[in-house]
Design a protein around this nucleic acid. Structure first.
Length: 198
DNA sequence: CAACGGATCAGCT
DNA sequence: GCTGATCCGTTGG
């Protein structure tokens, strides 16, 4: 996986997040992310290490989970080297395994609404503050697996922030119906094919 | 559909 | 106090 935050964001699309719940796999394919790179005014890490955002400064591939608006939590993956604060926010997944359990947790049967949005996907996967700071490589509870990259990746501006709001740092699978913020999907009108590997 | 308010936690001014 | 990387139920056009 790339160490650069933006490169990692693109590489994460298509990867599968798995949470083992009493031996049952609950999982989904990442279809939407946002990058919070170094020196980003919108990043929690912008003003240095704080108790809440300390996990952003962990080495590459650790979980940063924080609470938002009192009720919900958001999952990020730390992206840079130890001591540098940056991460990728996971914004939406396509439900794959353990769907009935996710439907129960989310109190809806509508597949499209199960994990569209960062707060929603954490409820669906039962990821919360207890997972803050875990190493996703060594954890046998929450981890990632390789999955098919999107055929086409779209780029847009990030959602719900005020500073650096125009930065094109939101990436999503252009063909997926499981992405959030539909009204802003074409905010930049930019899309491109990911770099072809020969 | 769009707009609004409530729920409710933690950091910052 | 207030604001925020949110979601949901309700209201009104």
């Amino acid at each position: 996986m790339p160490r650069d935050t933006v490169a990692l964001s693109v590489a994460l699309l298509g990867q599968v997040i798995v949470h083992l719940h009493e031996g049952e796999r609950v999982s989904g394919r990442i279809v939407e992310v946002e990058a919070y790179p170094l020196n980003d005014p919108a990043s929690h890490a912008f003003r240095g290490v704080r108790p809440r955002c300390r996990s952003m400064f962990l080495p590459h591939w650790h979980a940063y989970v924080y609470r938002i608006y009192g009720t919900y939590t958001c999952l990020n993956i730390s992206s840079e080297v130890d001591g540098d604060g940056a991460a990728v926010l996971i914004r939406a997944i396509e439900p794959l395994e353990g769907i009935s359990l996710m439907q129960w947790r989310r109190k809806t049967d509508v597949l499209r609404n199960i994990a569209r949005g960062p707060g929603r996907l954490n409820i669906a996967l039962d990821i919360g503050m207890t997972h803050d700071g875990i190493d996703l490589d060594s954890s046998d509870e929450v981890f990632l697996e390789a999955g098919p990259a999107p055929e086409q990746i779209a780029v847009g501006s990030r959602i719900g922030i005020s500073s650096a709001a125009d930065a094109p740092l939101r990436f999503y699978d252009a063909a997926s119906p499981y992405v959030s913020g539909t009204k802003r999907l074409n905010a930049l009108g930019v899309s491109y094919r990911p770099q072809a590997c020969s």
